[in-house]
Design a binder for these strands. Sequence first.
DNA 1: CGATAAGTGGAAGAGGGTGTGCGTTTGCAG
DNA 2: CTGCAAACGCACACCCTCTTCCACTTATCG
Lengths: 221, 221
Amino acid sequence: MERPHSQNPKTAPPATHLRADAQANHDLLVEAARELFSTHGIDVPLSTIARRAGVSAATLYRRFPAREALVAEVFAEQLGECESLLERCQADEDPGRGLRRLLMTITDMQARSRGFSGALLARYPGAIDLDATRERADHDLRGLVRRAQDAGALRPDFDHTDVYLLLLAVDALAAQPPEIAQAAARRLVAYVLQAARPGRAAPLPPPAPLELAVLHQDQGR
Amino acid sequence: MERPHSQNPKTAPPATHLRADAQANHDLLVEAARELFSTHGIDVPLSTIARRAGVSAATLYRRFPAREALVAEVFAEQLGECESLLERCQADEDPGRGLRRLLMTITDMQARSRGFSGALLARYPGAIDLDATRERADHDLRGLVRRAQDAGALRPDFDHTDVYLLLLAVDALAAQPPEIAQAAARRLVAYVLQAARPGRAAPLPPPAPLELAVLHQDQGR
DNA sequence: CGATAAGTGGAAGAGGGTGTGCGTTTGCAG
DNA sequence: CTGCAAACGCACACCCTCTTCCACTTATCG
């Protein structure tokens, strides 16, 4: 299928020629993991995934030494979509519309697939191919926010970390059944977006220090 | 201390006269649980709580047959505060201010104590003494929302389930370190409250079907 | 077709959390 | 002060998840 995606550079050279049956099992595993991550979250027991795929746990471990690797492969596509989405939104001639689209689309992805938030917020650090992509995303996001503000489409005290705040919040909603999660996410995002428009609104409390690095450690004080 | 609080009616009659040492251990356990629930969430291993309290796990199980019982006792006070808070806010002559106060105060409690959300959202059903209190709270909340709308302090399409939506969202923020969690909660609530004021705002997407019953089952599709 | 290396599943063990039976200690009342 | 029921902790059994070992199977290439 779409195997030759963003191959990890240091494991790519060996030109991993899997045997046909191994490749099939690999695909079954990814497929099973995709379903289970979406419905039950990113923490489903690996044995459950193996059973669903119809292979033994050992096979899963042989193919994916760490859970992280499986997560990365499962969400590689969607994570890629996110990147290109950001790129497109960031390049939108109407930055206000770009930001709205970005938020609505990403939160919708979160609500659709329960595990996606985990991968996105990088509770499993290897999922996104590390800091490079994140730094760039953060940079683009800041730029988009500033441009929206300059264009008068966004209140001046909107902070780029408010986006992370929203992603975190929507993550909680994703635990609900899909229809509820989506409705809830749409509603919450709509509230925030409406309040984020410039106008004679009262000042906001200071932004939460939700910088990039903060999100990457697992929940846990 | 404040032992004779909301004693469960069906265990009260025996006039549980605990031996002095047993009572002391009981208090140590509640104290330890309170701290650990606040910092590490409601799911900390019971053995950790026992160790922190300086007693054996068996003693914990003897005193609190189910985790739920411990949660109930630990958060009884704060849950009681919530009830009286709702009562006060609901009786506020300015319903808009009442609703604002209600939301700001409860979400602040969520952000301060990580486990509180769990007890409040009743992931552990016995925590709140069952449906009676909840039904009443739901009823009062609906009334408060309607009155705020009638008073012109709240947009007509605000739905009482939006409150649950917000509680759910803030729950996720509570996993962050306390200062961040509080700042984030304040910020999110401020956004929603500002957007919730009546005005020439665009219509919202339909409310999420987050009825009472929905919140009570644990997260898990 | 047959040799060989890649691939597989079952079984077993390590680790952590929950829950319990039992012999011992201890508060307290007579 | 003494006896006993209450309370305690140890130690263990159970379950679940992760992880690895090893003997067996099978795809593939010559």
